[in-house]
Structures are given as structure tokens and as C-alpha cells.
């Protein structure tokens, strides 16, 4: 709470005082600073949470690293700033962070009214509900009259209200500011169900005493395309963020991995040559080094590797690719051509 107020104050102060921060161009600012400042979630396993050595791990964190690698050739030149759910946009608007990679849903009103733009969708998510198995519930529609725990704001509270309004059911909403209290209230049985994005539910389930006691219901009650966000009116920086993400996707399509990227430099495939900077000068067009693509893959691997390492079936979250498979494997992940 105190932290939230502090960051709000800082953001408000930033808006009142600093007017010129955005004028210089984010790329120049980042280069002059020598590191990328990236806004991530507060300890969400799988997306952004420090490991036992203090290194930030997670899907969103790796998106930050890929952008840093594109700019500096080194994925570790990132300062991670855990952002509060209420002040994440202000942190971006005021210039406190360069890019927001924080499980943030791309919506019309955010895009149109908050002075920011969204990059490509990095994760297709949707809001779901999780219940204890012992409840014997198989569909969210059976949950009328139940108490449902959630975090404040985002689009979650609104979606769940809309869902029950559509089926004309009443429910009790219990809203917690802190993710820990939210989880504790759900595990203790204060609420029958907990609602959040499905990826987040997987994360909540993973840290339960006995994950098998809980089941995520089949309904997906909203579309939540999670995308990185950056300040409006800086198209060069926007291009760098977007193409860093698309390069991850294109690399998976071309089979370029962290392990084979050095051999791939000698590949005969002209697409691969362009992506890794062996031919032509695509990086220069963005104001980056020509080996930007090589640096990204060398630092974090391709999209599939990033996904499997942080969220995939080998991790505690155990998510399948689902809609996040490549377009030619039945999913929605599709990169425009890199040429």
C-alpha cells in the first residue's frame, strides 16, 4: 500500500516536473544510460520472479532481456522494476520505465486513452476460474451464489461481473490488494473460486500445498492478449520492442535456437541470414547493431524456448502451448516477414 502510494506520488511528480524526458527519444535515453529499465510483475512465478540467486526469471523478464540484447548485444543489461498493478501505466507514462512487460492486456481504452502503445501479443491468455476439486463443480455457470476471490481492478473484476450478469446469477466478490492474501483466502475456503488470467491461475495452483486438489474450469470468459507496452509517439522505440518480439517468433519458425545460433550464422537460408545480420543491414534501419537478431537468440533463445523454460510443461506451471503455438502448428503466434 505504502509502496503503491509512493509510486503514484513519484509518477504524479514525474508528470508535473519532467516534460522533456520523452523528447530525447527512448533509444538514445536507454543507450546513454547503459541499461534498459523494464517494468515487470511483483513476484509472479513463471512471468517475473527472482530465483534463489536473485536473478529475475520468467517469461516477461525474458522479453525484457531480448529487447536489451537487441539494443546492447547483452541481455543482462536490464534493470527490472517490479511495478504495482495500479501504477504500472503511470510508471511508463512518466518515463520511470522504458517498456512495460507485465502480463498486461491490450485493450482499446488503454491503447486510446493512456498515452501508450502496445507491441505484438506475446501470450494469448483468457480469464478463467479455479475451484477446489472437492466442490464437484464442472462449469463456471454452476458457481452462482458462490464467493469469488480476485485482485482489484485490471479487467478481471469487470469480466466476472459481466459473466454472471449474462447468465443472470448473483455472486459475492472478495477483492484483495495483495496476491498473497488473495491466494490465502482461496486456499482457506473463504472463497469457493478464484478468478484471474488462466496463466496466473496456473501459477497460483503451482504454489498450492497440493496442486492436485484444485482444478481450472473449462470456461474462458474473456480474451486477454498480453503484450508489452511503450510510450506513444516514439515509433522508432516501438519498432525496436515489436521486432525484438517478432524475431523471437520468427526464430522458432526457422528453427534457430540458443544452442545452434552460431552454426546458423553460416546458414544458406536468406531469411536466416537477414535475421542474424549475416547479410543486409536490417539492424541499422532500427538504429541498432546489425547483429541484433543474433544477440537476442544468443541471450534468451527463440519464442518456443522462452515459453518452455518459463511456462511450459516441464515447469511448475505446466502450461501447454495451446493458442500460443506457432501459426503453422495450429496456434496464433505469427511474425511478419523479417526482410
Amino acid at each position: 500500500m505504502k509502496q503503491a502510494l509512493l509510486s503514484i506520488c513519484a509518477a504524479a511528480l514525474g508528470l508535473t516536473m519532467a516534460g522533456q524526458a520523452s523528447a530525447a527519444g527512448t533509444l538514445e535515453t536507454v543507450k546513454a544510460r547503459g541499461k534498459l529499465v523494464c517494468g515487470v510483475s511483483l513476484a509472479t512465478p513463471g512471468f517475473a520472479a527472482p530465483d534463489d540467486k536473485g536473478r529475475m526469471q520468467g517469461f516477461d523478464a525474458d522479453i525484457c532481456r531480448s529487447i536489451a540484447a537487441a539494443v546492447f548485444g547483452d541481455g543482462d543489461k536490464v534493470e527490472f522494476v517490479p511495478t504495482n498493478i495500479n501504477t504500472r501505466f503511470q510508471a511508463l507514462q512518466s518515463g520511470e520505465i522504458d517498456v512495460l512487460s507485465r502480463q498486461t492486456t491490450h485493450t482499446f481504452s488503454r491503447d486510446a486513452s493512456l498515452g501508450l502503445d502496445f507491441g505484438p501479443t506475446v501470450f494469448y491468455d483468457g480469464q478463467g476460474l479455479m475451484v477446489a476439486k472437492s466442490l464437484g463443480v464442472t462449469s463456471a455457470k454452476e458457481l452462482t451464489e458462490a464467493a469469488i476471490c480476485t485482485l482489484p481492478g485490471t479487467t478481471t473484476a469487470q469480466n466476472i461481473s459481466d459473466f454472471f450478469r449474462a447468465i443472470n446469477g448473483k455472486f459475492e466478490l472478495v477483492v484483495f490488494e495483495s496476491p498473497d492474501e488473495n491466494r490465502a483466502a482461496f486456499y482457506s475456503g473463504r472463497c469457493e473460486a478464484i478468478t484471474s488470467d488462466r496463466s496466473d491461475l496456473a501459477s497460483i495452483r503451482a504454489v498450492a500445498n497440493n496442486p492436485d486438489d484444485y482444478v481450472v474450469l473449462p470456461e474462458t470468459i474473456s480474451k486477454e492478449p498480453l503484450a508489452p507496452a511503450f510510450r506513444q509517439n516514439d515509433s522508432n522505440w516501438g519498432d525496436i520492442v515489436s521486432w525484438s518480439v517478432w524475431l523471437l517468433m520468427a526464430a522458432e519458425e526457422k528453427g534457430i535456437t540458443q544452442a545452434n545460433v552460431d552454426e546458423m550464422l553460416k546458414s544458406e537460408d536468406p531469411d536466416v541470414q537477414r535475421m542474424l545480420g549475416a547479410t543486409e543491414e536490417l539492424g541499422k534501419m532500427l538504429g541498432l547493431d546489425n547483429n541484433w537478431g543474433y544477440s537476442i537468440i544468443k541471450s534468451v533463445g527463440n519464442y518456443g524456448e522462452v515459453f518452455e523454460r518459463n511456462l511450459g510443461e516441464g515447469t511448475r506451471l505446466g502450461l501447454t502451448r495451446g493458442p500460443n503455438a506457432l501459426w503453422n502448428a495450429g496456434g496464433l503466434i505469427y511474425s511478419p516477414p523479417i526482410r
Binding site: I8, T87, F89, Q90, P152, G153, T154, V175, F176
Partner: peptide
């Protein structure tokens, strides 16, 4: 109240802030 889920003024304002983005 916000820490323990009682919908007081700050909690409601936070939800509003999140939906409208008009924090100030």
C-alpha cells in the same frame, strides 16, 4: 482496509483507477 479486502474508498478507487487509467 485494502490489505484485507474490505471495499473502502481506497479499494474502490483503485479498481476505478485500473479500469479508467485516470489515476491523478
Amino acid at each position: 482496509a485494502i490489505a484485507i479486502g474490505y471495499p473502502d474508498l481506497v479499494m474502490v478507487s483503485n479498481t476505478v483507477m485500473n479500469q479508467t487509467g485516470q489515476a491523478i
